[in-house]
Computed example of a mutant assay.
Amino acid sequence: MIGFKQCPYPYDRYAINEYDLALDLKTGEVIVPCIGENSKYPGWSLVKTGETKTKTVHVHRLKAYTFLENNTGLPFEDCQVDHLDGDKLNSYLGNLEIVIPQENKARAYRTGLRKDNNRVLLVNLTTKEEHDCYSQAEAARVLGIGAPRLCEVFSKFGNDFVYRNYHVKRML
């Protein structure tokens, strides 16, 4: 079992290694991950302790659960595992980080992995400091107003205007 580490409950019947192999400690079978029809992530078909049916477990999640420390303050079940390079197939441990859902979503916007958000460019008219905000909500925080208020301002003034000493431009 060199190179393998036993998984925590409820997958303690298995041990995994950094090369994405799972070892069934009960049968000795080595399990190779595969990508199912309805998933973008590689996974193993594993049986939870006390159950009889297999369940697909994503490689990146079980590797993070087994090898990484959860510093989020939330139970692992409420966390997400971020692929730092954005590649869902790269489950190298150095590429994985346990994060809260809000952080994972924000990173996806900042890195351009998610395209369903409106970036907003803010330029302070006094200091000329630029804020490239990944979302309207982030722009609202910089402006010191609520996101609903910023939506009202966009509705009233359009996508390019001056507000509270900032040049505001929504990038569509």
Rank of each mutant, 00 (worst) to 15 (best):
143 L>F: 00
132 D>V: 11
76 F>M: 12
16 I>N: 01
104 N>C: 13
21 L>E: 14
167 H>W: 07
11 Y>G: 05
31 I>L: 12
147 A>H: 03
39 S>H: 12
154 F>K: 00
78 D>T: 10
75 P>R: 12
118 N>T: 08
54 T>W: 00
152 E>R: 02
131 H>K: 13
49 T>P: 04
14 Y>T: 07
5 K>W: 02
167 H>T: 03
58 H>G: 06
92 Y>K: 14
28 G>T: 06
65 Y>E: 11
68 L>H: 08
40 K>R: 12
80 Q>M: 15
36 G>L: 13
156 K>F: 08
171 M>Y: 03
39 S>E: 06
102 Q>R: 13
93 L>P: 09
39 S>R: 11
123 V>R: 15
131 H>M: 04
86 G>A: 12
49 T>K: 09
150 L>V: 08
126 T>Y: 15
152 E>P: 01
39 S>I: 05
107 R>G: 07
19 Y>I: 05
139 A>C: 03
119 R>S: 07
164 R>C: 08
68 L>K: 09
110 R>L: 09
167 H>S: 10
149 R>C: 02
11 Y>F: 14
13 R>V: 10
169 K>L: 04
106 A>Q: 14
5 K>Y: 01
103 E>C: 08
52 T>F: 01
37 E>T: 09
69 E>P: 02
170 R>I: 09
71 N>G: 07
68 L>F: 04
101 P>K: 09
89 L>R: 15
158 G>Y: 11
109 Y>T: 00
20 D>C: 09
161 F>T: 08
126 T>R: 15
138 E>S: 04
29 E>I: 06
111 T>S: 12
12 D>P: 07
46 L>Y: 01
75 P>Q: 11
154 F>R: 00
97 E>N: 07
151 C>R: 09
126 T>C: 13
124 N>R: 11
